[in-house]
């Protein structure tokens, strides 16, 4: 386990930027800002224009840490407290779950919740619950 510092201001500010991006994307191209949808659409593109905007969006996202470096002088911290095999297992499970669930933290948790979509509210409550249970089991039952 790794301790991390409580950062209410940075987290609130970063969260507001995430929200701003979601609002701007809806205002300009009329799309939901869901990381799952953007990534999944890259794998099975509808047409060239559809693939291109997703790829450009992904490129923009990847530049985010560099922008933070330029603004604050440091890259975002990435502390991975688990083994590589567990990282692979976690990634596979997330991929399967978000495909069937039709979204993740950004699509359901932010955009869908903001529209008060019943599907997104149920999806978000469900994954927040199972994430909490999983962390408890991994850290305090198996790992304890």
């Amino acid at each position: 386990m790794m301790e991390t510092a409580f950062t209410p201001l940075q987290s609130l500010g970063g969260g507001a930027l995430i929200g701003l991006a979601a609002v701007l994307l809806m205002a300009t191209v009329g799309r939901v800002m869901g990381a799952t949808g953007i990534l999944a659409g890259l794998l099975t593109p509808v047409d060239k224009a559809d693939w291109t905007w997703r790829a450009v969006m992904l490129l923009g996202m990847i530049t985010g840490p560099v922008a933070m470096m330029a603004l604050t002088g440091q890259m975002p911290a990435v502390q991975v407290p688990i083994s590589t095999p567990m990282l692979v297992v976690g990634g596979l499970i997330v991929g399967i779950g978000v495909t069937f669930g039709g979204g993740c933290t950004s699509g359901h948790g932010v955009c869908g919740m903001a529209r008060l979509s019943p599907r997104s509210i149920v999806a978000t409550l469900t994954f927040m619950l199972t994430t909490g249970i999983t962390v408890f089991v991994v850290r305090h039952v198996i790992g304890g």
Partner: peptide, 25 residues
């Protein structure tokens, strides 16, 4: 699929700590 998929997503997120929106950037 919505509820089951979301439940499964949570298990993976709880193992890895990365969600798609966090990992891509």
């Amino acid at each position: 699929p919505l509820i089951g998929g979301s439940a499964v997503f949570g298990v993976g997120w709880g193992i890895a700590g990365f969600c798609p929106g966090g990992a891509l950037p």
